[in-house]
Simulated scan of single mutants.
Amino acid sequence: MLIHGLLAGSLALSGTPATTAQAKIDCAEVKCLALTFDDGPGKSTAKLLRILKKERAKATFFLTGKYVDQRPALAKRTLAEGHAIGNHTYSHFSLTPRLDDEIFDDIKAGQQAIKKATGLTATMFRPPFGHTDERVLRIADELDLAEVKWTGTTHDWALKDKKKIKAKVLSLAKRDGIILMHDTVPQTVQAMPEVIRELKKRGYHLVTVPQLYSGKLRSGVSYP
């Protein structure tokens, strides 16, 4: 859904979990898990992309517009390498205390930054800090965006420890789960090779959020 033909054409070279051709994975039949990364693109994003490519895993990135403007090539590369991209607003402020026009304008500005950098019109967004309500959902619907939260958060920004982050991710892993992390936390990126390998051993197929829902995310609806 979100990255159209790019996802369908994104092929992996092995039939093991998390490496099968992404477009062919049926999460109703196999154990799927979505790794998601917020707040980028940042200084560690390029390293994370290299790791994901090497490990043949896909992820979802919720990009912050002001950082997309600073690193447009990284945003474009993220999409080109078969990952899903969502909008994490432009300024990364809490939406619920804001006026309707402020919410609309900041989400829309995030849309515009992503579109300018990648050519993509995002169809999902994640509210900063998870702060949302019926107004935010209504405005998201006006902008044709589904809201995506998570089933578990690592609090990696507070842990800042490779071993602890790895342990937290593995403790949160469950079928059809969506795990929140940050590619702006270097220790999270450092933990990813071991995390991905262990998840594969446990039988998980690492998919994007749109794949988790078979491309059927609807605007104005909050997932999961």
Rank of each mutant, 00 (worst) to 15 (best):
L2D: 08
I25R: 05
R50V: 11
A12I: 07
S94I: 08
R218S: 13
F93A: 07
L11K: 09
T96Q: 12
F125C: 00
V185L: 10
A84R: 05
P128Y: 00
V169E: 03
F129R: 06
K47E: 15
R202A: 11
G42S: 13
K160M: 11
I178P: 00
R71V: 08
I179G: 00
E134W: 10
R202N: 12
S91K: 05
L49N: 04
A28E: 14
V209Q: 01
I103A: 04
L170V: 11
G86A: 04
F129H: 07
L217K: 05
I178D: 00
V195E: 01
I3M: 12
I103R: 01
H83T: 05
D141I: 04
K116Q: 14
H4I: 09
H4F: 13
T208W: 03
K115G: 09
L199R: 03
A173G: 06
G203S: 07
F61S: 02
A167Y: 03
L120T: 01
T20R: 15
Q211G: 01
A23K: 09
R218H: 10
P97H: 11
I51V: 15
Y204M: 04
D161S: 12
A73I: 11
V209H: 01
G42I: 05
D100A: 15
T132I: 12
D100R: 15
A73G: 14
C27I: 13
Q187H: 12
E55I: 06
P186W: 05
G203C: 07
L52F: 14
R202H: 11
S214G: 13
A109M: 05
P127C: 12
L49K: 06
R77P: 02
G152I: 13
I51F: 09
T151E: 06
F61R: 02
P210L: 09
A8Y: 14
T208N: 02
G65P: 03
A191T: 03
M1D: 13
E134R: 12
F125N: 00
K76F: 08
A109Y: 00
V185N: 02
I107W: 00
T20P: 08
H88V: 00
R135P: 00
I179F: 07
P193A: 09
T45Y: 07
L172V: 07
R138S: 10
G220E: 02
L11A: 14
A191P: 01
D69C: 09
H4M: 12
W150Y: 12
T60M: 12
G119R: 06
P210T: 08
E81G: 12
G110Y: 00
L95N: 01
A28M: 13
T154V: 13
K201C: 06
D144N: 14
G40R: 02
S44Q: 13
N87M: 05
T121I: 09
P97Y: 06
S10N: 15
K149G: 05
V136H: 02
